[in-house]
Simulated scan of single mutants.
Amino acid sequence: MKVIIPVAGKGTRLRPHTFTTPKPLIQVAGKAIICHVIESIQDLGIDEVILVISPEGEDIVSFVKEKYPFKVGFVYQEESLGLGHAIYMAKEMVNKDEGVVVILGDTIIEVDLPRKKEIEDFIAVKKVSDPRRFGIVVLDEEGRIIKVVEKPDTPVSDLAIVGLYYFGNAELLFESLEYIIKNDIRTKGEYQLTDAIARMIDRGWKAKPLFVKEWYDCGTVSALLETNKMLLQKYHKEVKFPGSLVIPPCYFDEGIVIENSLIGPYVTIGKRAKISNAIISNSIIGEEAEVENITITSSLIGKRAYLKGVFKRVNLGDYSELIED
Rank of each mutant, 00 (worst) to 15 (best):
N282M: 01
E120N: 14
V100T: 02
I119R: 11
G189D: 11
P131F: 10
T297S: 15
E78L: 11
I279R: 11
A305V: 06
R132E: 07
I161W: 07
K188F: 10
A273E: 09
T21V: 14
R133Q: 13
S176Q: 09
T154K: 14
S222I: 15
L139D: 08
V148F: 08
K229I: 08
D97I: 01
D184G: 01
F252S: 03
Q27M: 11
K65N: 09
F252E: 03
S276H: 03
D43V: 04
E238L: 14
K117I: 07
F311W: 09
R186G: 02
E226I: 14
K23E: 12
F167H: 04
T18F: 03
Y216P: 01
P265L: 08
S244G: 12
K274I: 11
G105K: 03
D97M: 01
G143W: 06
K31R: 15
T187M: 09
P16G: 09
G270D: 07
V314Y: 12
I181D: 09
A223E: 13
I26V: 10
T187N: 13
R186L: 05
S261P: 04
K71D: 02
V125D: 09
I296P: 10
I136N: 13
G204L: 08
V162H: 06
F167A: 05
V221D: 00
A170W: 01
K308S: 11
D153I: 10
L164W: 05
G105W: 05
E110M: 09
K91L: 01
V148A: 05
K188N: 12
I280W: 06
A32M: 12
V102D: 02
S157G: 03
G302L: 04
V148Y: 06
D158M: 00
F63L: 06
I108S: 03
V246W: 08
G243I: 12
A207V: 09
G143I: 08
G243E: 12
E56C: 04
V148H: 05
F174I: 04
E56R: 14
I181F: 08
P152Y: 11
Y166A: 04
Y191A: 02
A196K: 02
H36R: 11
K234V: 09
R15W: 02
L173A: 01
E288T: 08
V267K: 12
S157Q: 02
Y191I: 00
V291N: 02
K117G: 00
G270H: 06
A278V: 03
L81S: 05
F63N: 03
